[in-house]
Simulated scan of single mutants.
Amino acid sequence: MRPFLKWAGGKRWLADREELPSLAKFDRYIEPFLGSGAIYFHSMPKSAVLSDVNEELVELYNVMKDSHCELYERMCVHHASHNKEYYYRIRSERPLDRIDRASRFLYLNRTCFNGLYRVNLKGEFNVPIGTKASVIFPGEDFITYASALSSAEIIVQDFEVTLDGCGFGDVAFIDPPYTVMHNANGFIKYNENLFKWSDQVRLRDSVERATKRGCAIIMTNADHQSVRDLYKDILEYSSVSRRSVLSGSPNARGTTTEAMLTFGVDWSAAEPKAVDEPATASEIEGDDLLRGTAYSGSREFPAAMP
């Protein structure tokens, strides 16, 4: 099942890959950096805790879960009204009603540039309009999304609190912003303001405590020596390659790698791979764009665009 959100750094590309360990044997699924929830929707666990520090994101998930009919009605209004003037009017609004807030969030996600989530220092969403005109997708069924979320606890919470609640029988899929110890890359510099290296260390400590309680771990992270060194004593490392289309020059496009770090997972059985359609090039580009710079609840996104 595809997620209903597009999110920078999303893992739709990984959902159909054999490198993703089987999640079938675990009693509960934990995801402390929710984003689009691509692995959750692909795996459809029987019980889950989904968390993020982005309050608007978590509110949307909960509205989809318990008020999907009302949300769909609001989205139909956005669909019928969508144009450039309407987009910027909705972007400037601050709804008081939770369903209006959720529909605004989803509308902006689907019609802004590359599905980015970015706010300025005042906490105002400032991504310009994109090229997509569809607000409701053909054949889309919000009831299906609501059903998929029905067994999940969805909460606003820091990753450390979420992971400290994990134990035996749980599996945590962890996809943090990709920050490394030393790097001249501009995106990494942005990350230092959003998810610092000290947060990576705090995450490592949280993961180590979780493994000692018997929680299985699947983590994706930057394939960088500083990250590999950080986790080398507690998690098993492998490198996963994927297509990258971020560069404006076709000659510079190719493959990139991400680190997969695991503990206590079952490599003997693969996840079913026939559920989702392969991600398109545009979806991969959206995953590439600002890979991991959006530590979801941050209010310090770079204001590079109007």
Results as ranks from 00 to 15, higher is better:
residue 258 E to H: 12
residue 225 Q to K: 05
residue 180 V to D: 00
residue 205 D to R: 09
residue 306 P to A: 06
residue 117 Y to R: 09
residue 183 N to F: 05
residue 72 Y to E: 15
residue 46 K to E: 13
residue 111 T to N: 07
residue 120 N to W: 04
residue 182 H to S: 11
residue 41 F to G: 07
residue 89 R to S: 08
residue 98 R to W: 06
residue 85 E to K: 13
residue 14 L to E: 08
residue 104 R to M: 04
residue 304 A to H: 06
residue 10 G to R: 07
residue 162 T to V: 00
residue 294 A to V: 13
residue 297 G to H: 02
residue 262 T to H: 03
residue 275 V to R: 13
residue 271 E to H: 03
residue 274 A to T: 12
residue 118 R to M: 02
residue 75 M to V: 15
residue 217 I to M: 10
residue 99 I to H: 01
residue 138 P to Q: 02
residue 239 S to L: 02
residue 25 K to R: 15
residue 119 V to T: 12
residue 39 I to Y: 11
residue 46 K to Y: 10
residue 257 T to M: 00
residue 164 D to H: 15
residue 96 L to A: 03
residue 116 L to M: 05
residue 48 A to G: 01
residue 41 F to Y: 12
residue 138 P to S: 10
residue 20 L to S: 08
residue 163 L to F: 09
residue 98 R to S: 13
residue 76 C to T: 11
residue 180 V to E: 01
residue 69 C to K: 11
residue 297 G to M: 01
residue 262 T to A: 01
residue 125 F to H: 14
residue 129 I to S: 09
residue 192 E to A: 05
residue 209 R to H: 06
residue 289 L to F: 10
residue 267 W to C: 03
residue 139 G to K: 06
residue 219 M to K: 00
residue 33 F to C: 11
residue 21 P to K: 00
residue 286 G to N: 10
residue 299 R to V: 01
residue 249 S to E: 14
residue 198 S to I: 10
residue 172 A to V: 06
residue 204 R to W: 13
residue 203 L to A: 12
residue 28 R to L: 14
